[in-house]
């Protein structure tokens, strides 16, 4: 048991990996969740999953790909479970200070607001396709659905966002 790598406090490259990917992860988690409190939880859960498989992620590209996939699948899984839970966490998150501080700086977060209006799966599909620049096939693989589903979801999402972006922009 002592040989388990995930819990070992040693130089296995995980700390450096966290430093490299954390800013991007936090940004994308925020755009997915719509607030920083949930985003930080999502990032932690994602990185924990990565750490638990760290010894099997032999290449940086594999680790990054696995991290991205885990981020989106964890987000969608948590959203699915939240729908069936009696907890309505999103509306009741008490810690909004980080959001308010961030929103108060510079221009309005038009992008986050527009994404927030989309259903979770459409939001994830749009982010993977147009913000992470993945093709339809890879997006479908991450979202565990058919490519045609990705196309229909992004089409609907863009139509919704067009109105939203033009209204806010």
């Amino acid at each position: 048991m002592d040989e388990d790598k995930p819990g070992e406090d040693k130089d296995d490259g995980f700390a450096q990996f966290v430093s490299e990917v954390r800013p991007g992860l936090r940004r994308h988690a925020y755009l997915l969740c719509g607030d920083w409190h949930e985003a930080e939880d999502l990032v932690q859960n994602t990185l924990l999953a990565v750490l638990l498989r760290w010894d099997r992620l032999l290449w940086p590209e594999a680790a990054r790909g696995y991290t991205r996939t885990t981020l989106y699948r964890t987000f969608l899984s948590e959203r699915r479970h939240a729908r069936w839970s009696t907890e309505t966490s999103r509306a009741e998150v008490p810690e909004r200070a980080a959001d308010e501080q961030f929103d108060a700086v510079g221009d309005r977060l038009i992008l986050a607001a527009a994404l927030r209006e989309l259903p979770a799966r459409q939001r994830a599909a749009v982010m993977l396709r147009y913000l992470e620049d993945l093709d339809v096939t890879h997006t479908a693989q991450i979202l565990e659905c058919a490519p045609a589903t990705v196309r229909s979801q992004t089409t609907r999402a863009l139509a919704s966002m067009r109105a939203s972006l033009s209204r806010q922009g």
């Binding site: 859960n45 498989r53 032999l58 964890t74 948590e78 992470e132 993945l134 890879h138």
Partner: peptide
């Protein structure tokens, strides 16, 4: 939670520069 298998991702294309890293 649902977690992908690492081997799935090892061969996946990594495109764009706006990813997690």
């Amino acid at each position: 939670r649902e977690e992908p298998q690492p081997t799935q991702q090892a061969n996946g294309p990594e495109t764009g520069q706006s990813g997690v890293g």
